[in-house]
Amino acid sequence: MSEEKFHRDPEEYAIFKRLNNKQFSKRLNDVYVTRKTNFKAQLERCMKLISSNGNYREITIHGMGSALERTINLALQFQVKTNCQLNTKIASIEVTDHLMPLLDDLEPMNDTRWVSTIHITCTLPAILTETK
């Protein structure tokens, strides 16, 4: 731990959290979990994707930061319902915080940090997909 932790004064800087959207995959069978979405709605969306109108053999559930616990819960609930196979991967992405000064004599700053992410691929068992 060489880098010293930087403490910002909430009266001096306003924080703008930015996420580079380009680093995410945007296939139709990707489900992104947030802490604001209703849990049941998220589960319904997963079920819809594998049902007849969606017709995907596998879906990928993504989550990051504080939504990790929710993401795992969603994947496990989905497994209980569909008896699918889970393949979990962990990664981390870099996010940038823009610090905008609220006082005149301060410079705007950037701060980068790492946020852990989880990607759970749910694959349906082979027997189920063949009978469809």
Partner: peptide, 11 residues
């Protein structure tokens, strides 16, 4: 609650 910390540790 420890899940995100465990992933952070592994990373």
């Amino acid at each position: 609650d420890g899940i995100s910390k465990a992933i952070a540790c592994a990373e």
